[in-house]
Design a protein around this nucleic acid. Structure first.
Lengths: 115, 115
DNA sequence: AAAAGTAGGCACTTTGTGGTAACTAGATAT
DNA sequence: ATATCTAGTTACCACAAAGTGCCTACTTTT
């Protein structure tokens, strides 16, 4: 699945590591379906997340180039987040992964019923 | 990317969570390229992994239906592992992810050089 | 004069995860 | 008698990630 077997420097591995942070795929999914969202809106959509973790996730996603941060120094400040082109590329792959996961779950459930 | 927004029960989330365990994708890649491998062979190919973690990863992969465990109660025991059909399905998606990761890294490097 | 509202920062605690080392079974080889 | 082999298990420690609570800036509203 890669030519680099060193699990430190495998680019897919670091991408997976990013996606795996809890909440991460959920954030991407929200920004994907709702469009641009402000920090507070995002937080309101995830009642159980803490500000700290949300900021952290957004910073990581920003550094990875998946999320764009728009900061306006109004008072109080206005910061909004949106997906980048890269995130849309990822989306296709993640949808593939999601399809597989859903199909497997279905298969498992059907197998359990017939048992 | 999913209809279930509850990050506890999202099947893609748990799949990602599984793949993220360190060594996991490497194990899948090894079994994919080398074919069936015994526990000791697998461990020899990953000099720095501990038995504990390797066993743990294999158990999780087995429960997720990605790896088949063949146990022969000889003395000493003979246990070998191989990929299941599901793992092969995953492979395509992961290759897509890997392609993206590699392309992005390339783009980034080129951009850094021209800067 | 005080409270509310935005987008966090900072310090602290808890939980999870990975890693280390020692130990097991039972037959075989020395 | 003892060391060796395989495929683990168990107890334990350390570090990183996640969660909690409190604090800030500046203006507008009450």
């Amino acid at each position: 699945m890669s030519e680099t077997h060193d699990h430190q420097s495998c680019p897919m591995d670091s991408l997976l590591r990013l996606l795996m942070g809890s909440w991460t795929t959920y954030i991407l999914w929200l920004l994907g379906t709702e469009g641009t969202l402000r920090f507070g809106q995002l937080k309101a959509l995830m009642p159980k997340i803490s500000s700290k973790v949300l900021t952290d996730r957004l910073r990581h996603l920003e550094r990875a180039g998946l999320v764009h941060r728009d900061y306006r120094p109004t008072i109080p400040p206005t910061v909004s987040y949106s997906l980048t082109a890269r995130a849309l590329e990822l989306r296709e792959v993640l949808e593939g992964l999601n399809d597989i996961a859903l199909r497997w779950r279905e298969e498992d459930e059907r197998r359990e019923l017939s048992a």
